[in-house]
Design a protein around this nucleic acid. Structure first.
Length: 487
RNA sequence: GGCCCCAUCGUCUAUCGGUUAGGACGGCACCCUUUCAAGGUGCAGAGACGGGUUCGAUUCCCGUUGGGGCUACCA
C-alpha cells in the first residue's frame, strides 16, 4: 500500500451460524493487512436479518476470532443499531433524486418475474414506478400505500480497480434498479453495508469474491451519497475436496470444529493463510503468526479458488505441535488430558518436569492434540490393558517371552542407575547372553509396559514410568503370561 | 438464460516471454531404527483445448470448454 493514510479494514459477518473457515480466512487476511500496515481491523456484525440472526452465532464469531488470535480494534459495530442512519441516508438519496418510490408489491414482482422466465427472458425491473406522475406518487403516499425505495441506476458503466483482479467493469444496463429500503423502512444489504462502511471510514473492503456482483451497486451508492470510494479486494472462495463450495457435506467447516478436533490455532491460521495467498518465490510454509504478519501483502493475493485439504491441515498441525514452545503447548493439552479422565491439573502442576518430558516425547508422534491424549494413557493409569493385537504379535510364544521378561526385570532391578544409557547397555548384554536380538527383548517389554506395540523409545518409557512402576508392570505381565501359558 | 470471476502435478503453490516447469501435502520406495512417529534420500505426477502476437509462449490477446459466483422488499 503506497497510500499514506492508514488502512481501515473490516470483517463483517452475518451471525447466522458458526464462524466458517471461509469467513475466518477473510477475517485473517483483513487482520493481517491491518497489523502489517499499522491500520485498523474493525468488526461489524450484520444482524439486520432478524429472522436468521442469533446471539449464539454472534458469540461463536467472537469466540472463533479470539481462538484464532485475531483481535479487533474499536467497538464492535452491530448493524442493526444503525437503522436511523440507514434511513437518513436513504432519505438523503431520495431528496437528491437518486432514488425513487416503488409501489409494486412482491406478489406483482414475483408474477412478472415468473412470466419473464416463461418467455426465457432475463427479468429486470421495468422502472414503471419511476415514470409515475409526481401527483400520483404524492397521492398514494398520502393514502398510506406501502412503497420501497429503489435506486435509479444511471446509464454508463461501473468500473473499479480490484486489488486482486485488476480492472473489473459492469455495464450499468445489466444492473437493475435495486431496492435499498424495504416497505417497512429497513435497509437492504447493499445499502446498509455502504452506509456503515462510510460511517466506519473503511478504506479497503476485502471480502469473498461472491461479492463482486454487489460491488457495482455499492459503488453507485457511494457516488449517490457523495462519499469517497474505498478500495476493493475480492478474495477467491474456498472449496471442499470435491471442488464445490465448502459446506456441511464436507464435514467440519466451522473453526470451532477444528478446535475440538485438536487443531492448534496457530496451525489453523497458518494453513488458512496459504489458501488464496502466497508470499511468492521460495518460502517456508510453516510460519508463526508473527512471521505471517511480516510476510503478508496484498500483492500475494491469488485469484483462483482453492480446495480445503484436511490432510495438509493435519500435517501443518503436526509441524506446529513439535515446534511450539512447550510452555505454549502445555495449556492446550492439559484440559484435554483432564477431560479424558487421566489426571488433574493439580497433579500435572506438581509433576511439571515429568509432564513436560512426556509432552515432548508424545508430540513428535502426534498430528492432533487428540493424538497426544490417545497415547498418554499408559503414563497415567494404574492398570494398563493389553491390546489384543500387541499380545498376538509380541507375546505369541509365552514360553519364550516369559523367561526373557523375567530376566529383563531382574536385570533392570539390579541397575545402579535409572538412566537410558545404563538400561540400554544392560539390556543389550542380556540379549547377547540369551543369543537373541535386541528386538526380542524390547518389543515384548514394550507391551508389558504400555500394552501397545507403539510408544516412544523404550528407555524413555521406563524413565517416564519410574523404576517401581516399570518393575511392577513387568511382574504383572509375567503373571499374565503364565496364565496364558497354562491355558 | 443474462452478467461477472477463474483455469500449472490429485491438492496447496513458484514462475512476473527463454527453466530439465521448482517446492509442499498426499502416495510409493529406500535409509535411520527397539516399535511408531519425526527426520533424510529418491520415484511417479501439471501448464484444459484451439487460434493468434512474438525469434520464442505456462506467461500477452481472442475464442472454445470446464468450474464458480450473482441474478430477492437474504446477507
Amino acid at each position: 500500500m503506497t497510500d499514506a493514510r492508514p488502512l481501515r479494514l473490516r470483517f463483517a459477518p452475518s451471525p447466522t451460524g458458526y464462524l466458517h473457515v471461509g469467513g475466518a480466512r477473510t477475517a485473517l487476511f483483513n487482520w493481517l493487512l491491518a497489523r502489517r500496515t499499522g491500520g485498523q481491523f474493525l468488526l461489524r456484525i450484520e444482524d439486520t436479518d432478524k429472522a436468521r440472526s442469533t446471539d449464539d452465532s454472534t458469540r461463536a464469531i467472537f469466540e472463533g476470532l479470539t481462538w484464532l488470535g485475531l483481535d479487533w480494534d474499536e467497538e464492535v459495530v452491530f448493524q442493526g443499531a444503525n437503522l436511523e442512519r440507514h434511513r437518513a441516508d436513504a432519505a438523503k438519496m431520495l431528496a437528491a433524486g437518486a432514488v425513487y418510490r416503488c409501489f409494486c408489491t412482491t406478489d406483482e414482482l414475483a408474477a412478472r418475474r415468473a412470466e419473464a422466465e416463461l418467455r426465457k427472458e432475463a427479468f429486470k425491473y421495468d422502472r414503471r414506478c419511476d415514470r409515475l406522475p409526481p401527483a400520483e406518487v404524492e397521492r398514494r403516499v398520502a393514502a398510506g400505500e406501502p412503497f420501497v425505495l429503489r435506486f435509479r441506476v444511471p446509464a454508463g458503466e461501473t468500473t473499479w480497480h480490484d486489488l486482486v483482479h485488476g480492472q473489473i467493469s459492469f455495464p450499468n444496463k445489466d444492473i437493475e434498479d435495486f431496492v435499498i429500503l424495504r416497505s417497512d423502512a429497513t435497509p437492504i444489504y447493499n445499502h446498509a453495508v455502504v452506509s456503515d462502511d462510510i460511517a466506519m471510514a473503511v478504506t479497503l473492503v476485502m471480502r469473498g469474491d461472491d461479492h463482486i456482483s454487489n460491488t457495482p451497486k455499492q459503488i453507485l451508492l457511494y457516488e449517490a451519497l457523495g462519499a469517497p470510494l474505498p478500495q476493493f479486494a475480492h478474495l477467491p472462495m474456498i472449496h471442499g475436496t470435491d471442488g464445490k463450495k465448502l459446506s456441511k457435506r464436507h464435514g467440519a467447516t466451522a473453526v470451532g470444529d477444528y478446535q475440538h478436533l485438536g487443531i492448534l490455532p496457530q496451525a489453523m491460521v497458518n494453513f488458512l493463510a496459504l489458501l488464496g495467498w502466497s508470499p511468492g518465490g521460495e518460502f517456508e510454509e510453516v510460519m508463526t503468526l508473527d512471521q505471517l504478519i511480516h510476510a503478508f501483502s496484498e500483492d500475494g493475493l491469488l485469484r483462483k479458488a482453492s480446495v480445503f485439504d484436511p490432510k495438509k491441515l493435519e500435517w501443518m498441525n503436526g509441524q506446529h505441535l513439535s515446534q511450539l514452545p512447550i510452555a505454549e503447548l502445555e495449556p492446550r493439552v492439559t484440559p484435554a488430558l483432564v477431560a479424558a479422565g487421566y489426571t488433574t491439573a493439580e497433579h500435572l502442576a506438581t509433576h511439571h518436569d515429568w509432564y513436560r518430558t512426556l509432552l515432548d516425547l508424545l508430540r513428535v508422534r502426534s498430528r492432533l492434540i487428540d493424538d497426544i491424549v490417545r497415547q498418554a494413557g499408559p503414563y497415567f493409569v494404574d492398570a494398563i490393558t493389553y491390546d489384543p493385537e500387541a499380545v498376538a504379535k509380541q507375546w505369541k510364544e509365552p514360553a519364550v517371552v516369559l523367561p526373557l521378561l523375567t530376566a529383563t526385570r531382574e536385570t533392570l532391578a539390579a541397575l545402579p542407575e535409572w538412566t537410558p544409557p545404563v538400561m540400554e547397555e544392560a539390556l543389550r548384554h542380556l540379549a547377547e547372553a540369551k543369543g537373541v536380538g535386541g528386538g526380542k527383548i524390547f518389543q515384548p517389554l514394550r507391551v508389558a509396559l504400555t500394552g501397545l506395540t507403539v510408544s516412544p523409545g523404550i528407555f524413555d518409557v521406563m524413565v517416564l514410568l519410574g523404576r517401581e512402576r516399570t518393575l511392577a508392570r513387568i511382574a504383572s505381565a509375567e503373571d499374565h503370561l503364565e496364565t496364558l501359558a497354562s491355558a
